[in-house]
């Protein structure tokens, strides 16, 4: 399977990326090499093979339901210019 530059541009948009022409050319080459490589999987019969999730049979640890306050909340807010207690984004029209 090969992707043309329009398809790659569309996929890039999905990832919220716009590409320069040079970047687009590079990405098309990259992605087609990539797909050629992963197309090898077709050689294998994977029907009865379980997807690999984790390296061994570990169980998800569970924490107790206890409230803890992150003390440096102000530092999180300080990563953005002051807009009161909010983070601001360009106006979104309500759907």
């Amino acid at each position: 399977m090969k992707l043309d530059s329009d398809e790659v541009r569309a996929i890039a948009m999905e990832g919220r990326l716009s590409l320069t022409d040079a970047e687009l050319q590079g990405a098309v080459r990259y992605i087609n090499n990539f797909l050629e490589m992963v197309d090898r999987f077709k050689e294998l019969d994977l029907k009865d093979v379980e997807p690999f999730a984790f390296a061994e049979s570990v169980e998800c640890p569970l924490r107790e339901d206890v409230v803890g306050v992150f003390r440096d909340r102000d530092e999180i807010l300080a990563a953005r210019p002051a807009t009161g207690p909010f983070f601001s984004v360009p106006r979104i029209m309500e759907e």
């Binding site: 992707l3 990326l17 990259y30």
Partner: peptide, 23 residues
Amino acid sequence: MFQEVRSHGFGSEVKSRIIAGTC
């Protein structure tokens, strides 16, 4: 805004891999 931030913020290798992963 998202597009501008990400297009300027990421280098081309990273962009290629994001595209690959998205694809």
